[in-house]
Amino acid sequence: MAPRTRRTERRAEALSRERIVEAAVELLDSAGERGLTFRTLTERLATGPGAIYWHVANKGELLDAATDAVLAAALTPTPGRADAADAADAPRAEIHAVALGLFDTIDAHPWLAGRIAAQLSLSPWRSVAPRVLEALGRQVAALGVPEAHWFTATSALMHYILGAAGLNAANARTAAPETDRGAVLDATSRAWKELDAGAYPFTRAVADQMRTHDDRAEFLAGLDLVLAGIAARYPPAER
């Protein structure tokens, strides 16, 4: 038994936790949570289940590790990120950078939105909430928001960013691969214009704006509305 145990240990050491998580992310991207099983993972890694269980106890731990790895990469500052014209603009520019990093990452990994929502609602002490709160909260403090209101302002930012990014990813995930976005928007715009004028005057009025909108640009516009609200609520004299 001893030689077999040593061979198992050597295989487990050669197959690192990082490689297992990397392969799990690849499977999640291609097949979603249902497609991530220990059987498919062992096939992809060309190993036995024992080598994987040496590093990861179960699927829940593996999903948490994959979420943490992808989120950490999204929130890691890159050289030259959020360059601003002056120091006063730096916190706002960094919030933009963090928000776009999350938006693009969730867009690239549609399964991530569900994992983030699950952690925030069921286990907010895990990696998601602290990472995102820290990345945004430091900048909220730098904007001059009074400390008594840091949580409220930062939570508003976090919920907007993750909610909008998650909805964008959900739209992409539910659409068929061959779906033409322009055709869908045109059809939706026409349908809105045909709604009852008395019941839906606003929806009819914005039908053309919806048809030509850009998801990323609208995301940033909404972010600026939230930031403008924070600035209005906590003007310089109160900071």
Rank of each mutant, 00 (worst) to 15 (best):
D104G: 02
T152R: 15
P146K: 05
A129R: 15
T174G: 05
D29G: 12
R115Q: 11
P3I: 01
N168S: 10
A191N: 09
T203N: 08
R204M: 07
T37G: 11
A221N: 13
D196P: 15
G60P: 04
A14P: 05
L28H: 05
R17K: 14
A153Y: 06
P91Q: 07
S30I: 00
I20M: 11
P124K: 02
D107E: 12
V132A: 02
E134T: 04
L162A: 01
R190Y: 05
D107I: 00
L45D: 07
R44L: 13
R34Y: 00
E61V: 02
L63T: 00
H55L: 10
E9G: 06
D104F: 05
L220K: 03
A153S: 12
L136E: 09
R173Y: 02
W111E: 05
V21L: 12
R190M: 09
A82F: 07
A57K: 15
P49D: 03
D208W: 03
R190S: 07
L45Q: 05
V128F: 03
E94T: 03
L15P: 07
F38R: 07
P236K: 03
L36I: 01
A72I: 01
L162F: 05
A207N: 09
R233H: 08
A57W: 04
V21M: 13
A172G: 11
A142Q: 12
L63I: 00
E13L: 11
T212F: 12
T67Q: 15
A232W: 11
A87C: 04
A87N: 09
A14Y: 03
T42V: 08
E194Q: 14
A23S: 10
